[in-house]
Design a protein around this nucleic acid. Structure first.
Lengths: 198, 198
DNA sequence: TACTTGTAAGTAACTTATTACATACATCAC
DNA sequence: GTGATGTATGTAATAAGTTACTTACAAGTA
């Protein structure tokens, strides 16, 4: 019962996957797990996606759309390049708190062997993200909001690492929500590395 | 043929797992994969470990032993707390270059559900590591080698995140070896956050 | 009526672990 | 030394369970 069109089922499958990934190893989530969580039979999933890999790809695309939207919104709401960096950092942290399964899914896909379509999509997202960061960093340098001799590549890597460090900590010691006030501390430390006085 | 005692086979199984994890998703490495790489039959593995989980636990214990040995050696060879931090960072990076499978294995185990014996072991390693970092950071503050108002918790989290950021970058764009010179840049940036002039 | 979405059952492939059996090897009586 | 014996390590086959995906059929919906 409760028949639904493919479009809404696809969304449901994606969000169920993201939800389940918050508490389990994404690699261990089976089509049966997803179907049970949706109260349909396992075979029903294949009415809406041809393969499991197609589901994983759709999940990654969903993440890209949502996360990049948040990042871009934070950037747009900023008055200068330094505010952009702060805003993107906190937006990313908030997104991770809202969807704790997301970093786990991303990392699980990064572990996939070379040539996997899903993996390459994740690589594209990260490249795009790094490029955005590099632009803001360069602008901040030009506007003398950060010190003039910052290694932009290292700064972009450390930005992502800082977030990843918070994620790892939440995976170690409890819910990501607890890490939110820690996030402010880490951001402050990161900005100090860029020469920002606080 | 080429019978070998259990002790050496156990070591071989562990190092084969670590080696395979450098190029594949650790979650996808089967006992058949390990056995093939060792040129024995799949069943032979169970002469030396009772279950696959026992293999995974042994791998984690091997990592702990080796990594912590490197970290401690780097600490011991340092003249002050700041040199300790630098030494530990670079030792960790070098270890990751030598064994690219290690961070993947650690992360894969962290994804495991709560209560898993292997996961809890990894948690212990990370706690121990963080504690070591906190001590060095506190000492460095006391000796006025870094600025006096560093948030030690955030600094420990960012230290691990900085390494994790390098690992993610290598997973994105190629071998970890390429990331070595990047590591120096990230370390410099991290230390700048602690108020270290360079 | 024609198409879409669902179920129930089944299948092929894969994975961990076990079992029956074979053989190398250390130990020890002699 | 030599040979017997028990144990450790290996193979081949297979059991038992799981997973992604398919198929035959039913029923809702435009």
């Amino acid at each position: 019962m409760a028949r639904q069109p493919t479009e809404s089922r696809q969304v449901e499958i994606i969000s169920t996957m993201v939800r389940l990934a918050a508490e389990r190893n994404p690699a261990d989530i089976t089509t049966t797990d997803i179907a049970n969580a949706m109260a349909v039979t396992q075979g029903a999933l294949f009415r809406h996606f041809p393969t499991k890999e197609a589901i994983r790809l759709a999940v990654v695309e969903w993440i890209e759309e949502r996360l990049m939207q948040e990042i871009d919104a934070a950037r747009a709401a900023s008055i200068d390049a330094l505010a952009e960096l702060k805003g993107m950092f906190m937006a990313h942290v908030r997104f991770t708190i809202a969807y704790p399964g997301v970093p786990r899914l991303i990392f699980a896909e990064l572990q996939q062997p070379d040539g996997s379509a899903v993996r390459e999509r994740v690589q594209l997202i990260m490249q795009r993200y790094r490029k955005t960061l590099a632009i803001s960093l360069a602008q901040a340098m030009e506007a003398k909001l950060i010190r003039p001799n910052v290694d932009v590549q290292a700064a972009a890597a450390l930005f992502l690492g800082a977030i990843q460090g918070l994620v790892m900590q939440s995976m170690l010691s409890g819910p990501m929500a607890k890490a939110e006030h820690q996030a402010a501390g880490v951001l402050k430390l990161y900005l100090a590395g860029l020469g920002v006085e606080s």
